[in-house]
């Protein structure tokens, strides 16, 4: 945009603040418009004896459902500002605690997937872009197009079946062995072993994205004089790919990382369900099914905040790379 840097940064912060406010409002409103009586739904079992009117009212108050909608929203925001995300009755724990525990595991998956797709995607993309008409380039294009058309849960299930059932190299699910070993190093190895398949499933989706980005960029770069000159001077192999292409690709790819984060959530959700991985996706899925209002709101807000902050950081990084490049 034409505006200068400070106002750009200001706008970015403002946009994100507004987006977060929208999430807060939605997180507050949507569950309240869902059908069903949240108080009744807390009685998860038919063994439950039923509620007297007074108990019903108390429970309603405790769940932040007392008073008018406006009052509820004010109470809700005030609590939110003081860092109180509410209490999940179903988990019998503060929402912040449930969410924090789950976010840690999801972050692990996202972090592990990060290098996988950031290396493989662009690498394949460059190869395909450098030789668009040769069998390798065409083959890669067809193969990854096909892969991109397989939904993430199908990829997860295929990976699970291939590498955990047919050839049982990896565990079927979960984040850790049933009985975590006492030795921290062995334990970390176990955690990584459990995270490998879900991370790979998560990365697959992004590999396709970054493949197309890099292939397109490589095709475009191949027409630029500095690359044409370099190739004419006989520069090839790793030097061409790393020094000439990857370096110019970096800002483009970094610019897309922000979108990637938001997009990754929808993939993480499916991956965590298929691998029953105890992350935020599974928590949200369970909260929706169990109609755990407080948890659903808290999880959605935390997740959105995390995505917005990381996305701002990545955008900043992309801007810096672009100016330098």
């Amino acid at each position: 945009m034409a505006a200068g840097f400070p106002s750009r940064a200001g706008r970015m912060v403002l946009d994100r603040a507004l987006a977060l406010l929208l999430v807060v409002a939605l997180g507050f409103l949507l569950p309240r418009f869902m059908p069903g009586d949240p108080v009744e739904l807390q009685r998860a079992s038919d063994l439950d004896l039923g509620l007297a009117a007074a108990q019903r009212e108390t429970l309603r108050q405790e769940m932040g459902l007392g008073g008018s909608l406006g009052e509820q929203f004010l109470t809700y925001c005030a609590a939110l500002l003081s860092g109180d995300l509410g209490f999940s009755v179903a988990h019998a724990a503060p929402v912040s605690q449930v969410v924090a525990g789950a976010l840690a595991w999801t972050s692990l998956l996202v972090l592990l997937a990060f290098p996988i797709y950031l290396l493989i995607g662009p690498w394949l993309g460059i190869e395909s872009g450098l030789a668009p008409e040769r069998p390798l380039g065409r083959g890669l294009l067809v193969g990854l197009s096909a892969l991109g058309s397989v939904p993430p849960y199908a990829v997860s299930i295929l990976l699970l079946w291939l590498l955990a059932v047919a050839v049982p190299l990896f565990p079927l699910g979960g984040a850790e062995a049933l009985l975590p070993p006492a030795d921290p190093l062995v334990r970390i190895a176990g955690v990584l072993h459990h995270a490998a398949l879900p991370a790979l499933a998560l990365a697959t989706h992004e590999i396709v994205r970054f493949f197309f980005l890099s292939r397109g960029a490589t095709l475009a770069l191949s027409l630029r004089p500095f690359v044409i000159n370099a190739r004419a001077r006989g520069i090839a192999g790793w030097r061409l790919r790393v020094t000439y292409l990857a370096r110019s690709l970096a800002p483009v790819l970094a610019g897309r990382l922000g979108d990637t984060l938001a997009g990754q959530f929808s993939v993480v959700l499916f991956v965590e369900i298929v691998f029953s991985y105890p992350g935020i996706g599974l928590v949200i899925h369970e909260a929706i099914r169990a109609r755990d209002l407080a948890l659903l709101q808290g999880a959605v807000i935390c997740l959105a905040a995390a995505i917005l902050v990381l996305n701002a950081l990545l955008d900043g990084l992309a801007g810096r790379l672009a100016r330098r490049g």
Partner: peptide, 8 residues
């Protein structure tokens, strides 16, 4: 889903 069911 449970909520909609309860409602109905």
């Amino acid at each position: 889903e449970q909520g909609a069911l309860q409602d109905r």
